[in-house]
Nucleic acid binder design. Structure first.
Length: 426
RNA sequence: AGAGAGAUGGCUGAGUGGUUGAAAGCGGCGGUCUUGAAAACCGUUGUGGCCUUACGGUCACCGGGGGUUCGAAUCCCUCUCUCUCUGCCA
């Protein structure tokens, strides 16, 4: 969430930045008027509490001296009632302000290209080469079926559509990718974690997924637990309500988890095979760092994510999202897309975002530092997240780009020590 | 799932209605001493809101929420979590 103080002090700036991402900025004025009332209530309540504290001490002294304090007690009873009604009122305003804040996205960084839709995203680089085939390349579904390594029909039998079943060398290839990617990211300085995939409502709120995206997630009502749509949620919450030591920064994690997304409302062509699924696997990267370093760290993370694609020798591009296409919590974001040789289009396989202090403010993830006059202060860290990478779309690109005329799939060199085989035949 | 115990500041741990924001110890930081270090001694050491240019003032916070009271870490209700024992299960 945004800082109400920033909204209060830099109203024009906040509005301008929200407008740049096509957000309605009228909520800012609503917030300011609520905030004004809230501050007024705080002043009234606090000064009454001060009075109550003082007089209560006087009553204690009088009682100790066996004096009669009935008058003061009666007076304070009234004061207490007044405080109570002020605080009840205050609570209503707090909740209303908080609810409004929860629906306001992060502010785009000044460096983010302005735009009105995804069409205004900017391509910042292409690496690798499109493979030339002297035959018509099969898509990943045909390959999966022909080689008997992917079984979307039986996956659907088990859990409904969008829950892929990997078989034989398909399952082994998937597992090889996990190990390869985790090893690579550890080399890049990320500490490996294996987190819960069911998390509490509080954790989802801390990651700013609730309330805005509650309907997009699987929910276990009996225990009020949510299946994570990304390990970003569980990893971010590792340090919820903590104050990290400045000398430990940046703190970097990588973790592989299943990811679950309801994808309600999606249908048609996009949903076939791996292109849009309810369950997939992803290695997630999270960095907690000092505010002044977060954009530098964003560059590092982008490099760490694309490094996987380079080693796998895949054709990919990086695009920078424009203001209108930024994710809710992001101030700046790069998407990495791999080429599908059968579909002849780009597939998003990673998204690397700087979420600045947007999540850490709600999650209360901070660090401590000394000011110039040696006063200790705490400040919110910046949090970044990125996929490094998601395997489902990656698998599409991998199978399609490495297929042979016979319909076999060659394993990229970097993966062979992980798979233990060089080619998948039927 | 059943029975019991517990949750206090970075940590250990006192505190059961009125200078307790909280004893004490450890740790941290600063200082004295020392060539340097250790030891010893002295001092200091939570977070957030609001007011203030600042100094500072004030309010809140002893797992979360609610209640009793002039006044709650302390009493009552409730929820969550942790530990021990029993049951069930990977």
């Amino acid at each position: 969430m945004l800082d109400i103080k920033l909204i209060r002090d830099e109203t024009g700036f906040v509005k301008e930045r929200l407008k740049s991402r096509n957000e309605d900025d009228s909520v800012i004025d609503e917030l300011l008027s609520l905030d004004k009332i809230r501050l007024d209530l705080i002043h009234k309540s606090d000064s009454l509490k001060e009075k109550r504290n003082t007089v209560s001490d006087e009553i204690a002294v009088m009682k100790r001296n066996k004096q009669n304090a009935e008058d003061k007690i009666a007076e304070m009873k009234k004061v207490s009632d007044e405080i109570k009604s002020l605080d009840d009122e205050l609570k209503k305003y707090d909740e209303e302000i908080d609810l409004k804040l929860r629906y306001i996205p992060n502010l785009p960084d000044k460096s983010v290209p302005l735009g009105n839709s995804e069409k205004d995203n900017v391509e910042v680089g292409i690496k690798g080469e499109i493979k030339k085939f002297d035959f018509k390349p099969k898509d990943h579904i045909e390959l999966g079926k022909f080689l008997d390594i992917l079984d979307f029909e039986r996956g659907a039998k088990i859990s409904g559509s969008g829950f892929p079943l990997y078989k034989g060398k398909g399952a082994q290839l998937e597992r090889a990718l996990w190990n390869f990617m985790l090893d690579e990211q550890q080399k890049n300085g990320y500490r490996e974690v294996l987190t819960p995939v069911l998390v509490t409502r509080t954790s989802m709120e801390a990651a700013e997924k609730i309330p805005k995206f509650e309907d997009d997630m699987y929910h276990i009502s009996k225990d009020d637990l949510f299946a994570i749509p990304t390990a970003e949620v569980s990893i971010l919450n590792i340090h919820r309500d903590e104050i990290l030591k400045q000398e430990d920064l940046p703190v970097k994690y990588c973790g592989l988890t299943n990811c679950f997304r309801r994808e309600a409302g999606s249908y048609g062509k996009e949903t076939k095979g791996f292109l849009r699924v309810h369950q997939f696997n992803k290695v997630e990267l999270i960095t907690f760092c000092l505010p002044e370093n977060s954009y530098h760290e964003l560059g590092n993370m982008l490099k760490d994510a694309t490094g996987i694609l380079q080693k796998l020798d895949l054709y990919y591009r990086v695009i920078e999202l424009c203001t209108a296409d930024l994710g809710f919590a992001a101030s700046k974001c790069f998407d990495i897309e791999v080429w599908s040789h059968a579909e002849n289009k780009w597939l998003e396989t990673s998204s690397v975002s700087n979420c600045t202090d947007f999540q850490t403010r709600r999650a209360m993830i901070r660090y401590k530092y000394l000011t110039e006059n040696k006063k200790s202060r705490t400040e919110y860290l910046h949090a970044l997240n990125g996929s490094g990478l998601a395997t489902s779309r990656l698998m599409v690109a991998l199978l399609e780009a490495n297929q042979t005329k016979e319909g076999f799939v060659e394993i990229p060199r970097a993966l062979r020590s992980y798979t233990g085989f060089d080619i998948i035949r039927n």
